[in-house]
Design a protein around this nucleic acid. Structure first.
Lengths: 236, 236
DNA sequence: TAGCCGCCGCGGTCAGACCAGATGATCAGA
DNA sequence: TCTGATCATCTGGTCTGACCGCGGCGGCTA
């Protein structure tokens, strides 16, 4: 009902807020240099600690980049901060529903990713996907490298959508799951099955068949989950 | 080919890294209090500036909360940082493909959201969705309030999925788009059409018909886009 | 015993100093 | 003239020590 009374902003928060606002209003453009700390001191009439802590916050948000000996510069808008935040979130989050939520989202995003890739992949994109698959086939006996190529396959697929946002949202999820996979003991024949599925996916993408591509990916993910569940059952 | 030579970590980055690692390893648990700054000084053998700047970074990442007069405490894992980062990203990003990317993702996520809501919505969820729709109908002549209730409708739908990750990814996107809508001039009959679509969505959700719910939402979003394009065409 | 009050521990801010890396002007030598 | 070393002077990074105001706790008082 009642809003918690906001503690009056700490000065470094206020300074950070003002500079952030200036950047968002496009008063400062990417590449521009912020005034040096000792100048901001006078501008805001605060101590250097306040200025420095403000700049740290803005740097962490990905708004500026601080280069020792040179200065602080406005950064190009980019997805780095979101990617990091999402990865950190996925790493810490451990609800009872979390695994289910993650799986649902992955099926959804990655299914559509594959369909989009089938529509938009360039020759170069396809080459990268094929290279990753070839890597999987070559390293089927080295789980660590195998998983690496597996991840590479999914990343190349995401890139092939030419939808940056899709790539941004999907990559941390895929990364987390393949990471987990690397820590599971290999189940018998898991690699062979994975390769079979990946081949089917690539085939559909090359044939420019979005519906079939989506189906193949969803089948792969369902299989993947089944394997994870089997493994969990076998160790509990 | 070559990796850029990594400048040796600044001390406040190193300190932040170590504390973050300790939190992620679960050596520190949510609610735990970090040692006071003056104690960390001795522990790390650095000055208080370094400690303070480290803590600012961790606070910005959402790992700790700093309470003046009390101390620094480990925060419960939460989605706040991701939400903020995603919103900031969406606000700054302006590729030529950005609008297309955003639309694709929204259709995908929100279509599935609606389908999931149809499966999982509780009576309470449904009541909230209905309340939002009622608000839209009551405020059809007040664009600002209308948009607010529209957003509320979509938020309630996202909550009804009971998939936190879905909600997390979708909300900033929905928020951005309805925000943009509020700044467009109202096109004739746009509100009436929107209400009609929302009614259809709610109907399908209440009938527990995921496929129909997804269809209704996708139809609504397509209509929404058409409106936006019309408006852009009429003003260019 | 209930309530006031002051001590103390905490983060927030300040001032001034020095360090190291980057940069550009200057100047000596080829 | 050109080249290269050198140095003054920017920048951010770190250190020190001090003071402020808030929150909590315990002792003191009515």
């Amino acid at each position: 009902m009642f809003q918690r009374v906001q503690r009056q902003p700490r000065m470094y928060e206020e300074v950070a807020r003002q500079i952030e606002a200036a950047i968002l209003m496009n008063h400062q453009r990417p590449g521009d240099q912020l005034p040096p700390e000792r100048e901001l001191i006078e501008h805001f009439a605060v101590s250097r600690s306040v200025i420095r802590e403000s700049l740290k916050v803005l740097a962490e948000k990905g708004l500026i980049e601080i280069l020792p000996g040179k200065g602080a510069f406005i950064r190009e808008p980019g997805s780095g901060a979101v990617h990091d935040a999402l990865r950190l979130y996925l790493r810490r989050q451990r609800d009872e529903n979390f695994a289910r939520d993650l799986t649902e989202i992955r099926q959804l995003l990655e299914g559509e990713t594959t369909a989009l890739a089938a529509t938009r992949a360039t020759a170069e994109d396809l080459a990268k996907i094929e290279a990753a698959l070839a890597g999987m086939e070559a390293e089927r006996d080295n789980l660590e490298k195998f998983v690496q190529f597996d991840l590479q396959f999914h990343q190349a697929l995401a890139t092939a959508t030419h939808n940056d946002l899709m790539e941004l949202l999907l990559l941390p999820i895929t990364g987390l799951l393949t990471d987990m996979m690397a820590h599971l003991s290999p189940l018998p024949r898991a690699q062979e099955e994975a390769i079979k599925h990946h081949r089917a996916i690539l085939r559909a993408v090359k044939r420019r068949d979005p519906a079939q591509a989506r189906r193949a990916m969803k089948a792969h993910l369902k299989q993947f989950e089944r394997r994870v569940r089997e493994y969990q059952a076998s160790t509990s």
